[in-house]
Design a binder for these strands. Sequence first.
DNA 1: AAAAATATGTCAACATAGCTGACATAAATT
DNA 2: AATTTATGTCAGCTATGTTGACATATTTTT
Lengths: 177, 177
Amino acid sequence: MADRSSHSTKPIRTPLSGEDDLDLSVIELFFFAYRDFTSDPDQILEAYGFGRAHHRVLYFVNRKPGLTVAELLDVLQITKQSLARVLKQLIDTGHIVQVQGPRDRRQRELYPTGKGRQLALDLAKPQSRRIRAALESVDGSARAVIQDFLKAMVNPELRPQIDHLPSAGAISKGADE
Amino acid sequence: MADRSSHSTKPIRTPLSGEDDLDLSVIELFFFAYRDFTSDPDQILEAYGFGRAHHRVLYFVNRKPGLTVAELLDVLQITKQSLARVLKQLIDTGHIVQVQGPRDRRQRELYPTGKGRQLALDLAKPQSRRIRAALESVDGSARAVIQDFLKAMVNPELRPQIDHLPSAGAISKGADE
DNA sequence: AAAAATATGTCAACATAGCTGACATAAATT
DNA sequence: AATTTATGTCAGCTATGTTGACATATTTTT
């Protein structure tokens, strides 16, 4: 019987498994780990009527206060129309404020307010707790290895983005009022 | 001037950084790593008119052929209405077939076809390549540490799900025709 | 045997978060 | 003065999730 394009519709009963050069265990661990990693903040955000998109915006604005709209779009890799909606909500609810760029007045620098900083902290806490617990359950020296691994998973051409964030080690010297 | 709920709208200029017990570097590395990890298959799926949802269904059906709809819903943690759409497309395009459960004839066992297996392989390859490259860039003994870490990131009550997948090591004994 | 529970499917309506394309405005650059 | 750039906004589309209601076949319980 003619089956389309050389494949039959016969059910395959053998599980796909990492014989060849397939690393299925890391693939699926990554999937499950990320799913649960994002579930912590998702629950908190629900109470605010926010979603994961708001979280990402809030996170990076807190991580690099004063970043412009264009820079944020670059990090998030979404369109400005897509950003507009969530950003507007975060501004309307007083989590983020816009400041006209001091050099280039076309630019809008984005800053968290006290409220926005507090929410960012609240969202980061359960995630940090999960990470800490996971690190404790493995070797003590694992931390550097895991960071290196995760960084190596990122596209090389996009790694500069990460490096340009104020590193957890080297705190930048800005003084708030 | 009265500001709502004890917070001012004054812009905060200090970057959020991991002073307290905040593990920002792993938080953001995880975000970037997962983003790029999923971008490989996304590109392939586009050619088929499929999305990430199709990928997940196809993946787990290949990983555990014969799983029922209910089991799949359990793994994916979505509603049956949500699953219905993508599953229908995968069946219509001949990537997955349904077989009436042999014991309980209400159940629908899901199996990949040759075509569905092939696509699953094509999607897993670039992800495995990325993982392999990342593992090579770190210590050789890192593999076990990273797997343990990722597993520890998963909610304890959901870990059985992972363990019940045919592990890359112990291949189950099913014989295809 | 009848009733209840279960596994699945389906219809309709809705929400979120992404997208493209088009156009407007203000400010900077040429 | 003309052009480019940074941002904003309108309108409509898609993908993927949601809830609620209901239908059907089959199994389990009474």
